[in-house]
Amino acid sequence: MLCLGIETSCDETALALVRDGRLVDQCLHSQEKLHALFGGVVPELASRSHLTALPALLECLLERTETTLGDIQVVAAARGPGLLGSLLVGLGMAKGLALSLQVPLVGVNHLHAHLLAAGMEQDISFPALGLLVSGGHTQLYRINSPFHFELLGRTLDDAAGEALDKAATMLNLPYPGGRYIDALATGSTPNPTLFPRPYLDNRNLDFSFSGLKTAFSQFIGEHPQLRIPFQADDAKLRGWAEAHPELGTVCASLNWSIAETLRTKVLRALNDGGPYRSLITAGGVAANSMLRALLTETTQGHDLELILPSPGLCTDNAAMIAYTGWLLAEAGWHHDLTVEAVPRGKPIVWDYRRLPDDASAKPVCLDTCRPPN
């Protein structure tokens, strides 16, 4: 079965083809330079850019894979959570293709797709503990199967990736800045007392990084010499960092505070809610080198398999959408043309139908993502 995946949940426009669970190819258009001018994603510009880029990306993907539209057997699109305007563009294209090609349509939960993406590269052992860490989300799940996600904890305010990106903005690093924080931290020893490990004085599995962001802002206000006095390209940034080694210590300390907070909550979940057979870590921050190192130590101590997608599958991509869409279609689940886009902050319901349509199918909340009995 050949599935076309469409990803437009935020500021990356992407299309991918997955055949029988394996990636054929994908095409990506990044809006990074566009939004860098504003220091963050501008929703209206993002949706307009998706609208412009998608037709050319589809033509590129079909040409590179020597595929025709008639070869596509399933169309999948990210339905949420994300920016509503951006989601509507991708989902609209998916509906048009599914209708014209007379093939099943599958709306995909963007967050669950992140956690399942590693399945294209290796087998996933269930039940798994899933840690999703990105610019917009920090969540923990118990994953009993590709269709059964139980939400254990979520961020109450800022996500870990947002804290990293905002800290980078305070230092005048290029946007998006999380990867620059990680790069500057490499080779430096963190100071565990420099920044707090936020929201650990409790027994729950939720997260909160707004206080850490405030602490970092206050620290930079007291040490303004750490701010880079120009808009740095990579070469200038390396030179500045070599001349100011204290910057590396600050970045390493922030990195450690976030990574150690995430590890502490993971340990809490492992001890309180097991057993688990694997730990899946996904999302853009899953590429963070310190987080990967700490989680490697954690899983080795608990005899767990650590599943980390390759860096290209950590950030937003269409391969994960196509793969999750393929999994659902293979199991007989699909949507009709009334499927709606779901913006961030609203629950996504299980409103799939069986092939052929089962009129008795009832929606259930995807916080405990599983098919109805």
Rank of each mutant, 00 (worst) to 15 (best):
T8P: 04
D11H: 08
L23C: 06
L28R: 15
A36V: 02
L37P: 00
V41T: 09
V42W: 13
S49D: 11
L51Y: 10
L51R: 13
T52E: 14
A53W: 10
L57R: 05
R64T: 01
R64Y: 03
I72N: 03
G82S: 07
S86A: 14
V89N: 13
V89Y: 13
K95V: 10
L97M: 09
Q102H: 14
Q102N: 15
H114G: 06
H114P: 02
G136C: 11
H137W: 11
Y141F: 15
N144M: 04
R154E: 15
D158F: 03
G161K: 04
G161Q: 05
L164S: 08
K166F: 09
N172H: 14
P176Q: 08
G178E: 09
G178A: 09
R179F: 08
Y180E: 04
Y180T: 00
I181R: 00
I181C: 03
N191Y: 10
R197C: 10
P198T: 08
Y199Q: 04
Y199G: 09
D201Q: 14
N202S: 07
N204G: 13
L205H: 06
S208P: 10
F209M: 05
L212D: 13
S217I: 00
F219W: 14
P224A: 04
R238Y: 04
E242D: 15
E246N: 12
L247K: 07
L247N: 07
G248I: 05
G248H: 05
C251N: 06
S253R: 02
L254Y: 06
S257G: 14
E260S: 12
T264R: 04
R268C: 06
A269Y: 05
N271C: 05
G273A: 11
G274D: 07
R277H: 15
L279T: 02
I280G: 02
G283S: 04
A286R: 03
A286Q: 02
M290A: 14
R292V: 11
R292N: 13
L294Y: 07
Q300C: 10
G301L: 03
D303H: 15
I307Q: 02
I307E: 02
L313E: 02
D316Q: 07
N317D: 08
M320C: 03
G325V: 05
W326A: 00
W326R: 01
E330I: 00
H335K: 01
D336L: 02
V342D: 13
P343R: 06
P343D: 11
R344V: 10
P347C: 03
P347Q: 12
V349G: 11
P356S: 06
C365P: 12
C365T: 09
D367W: 04
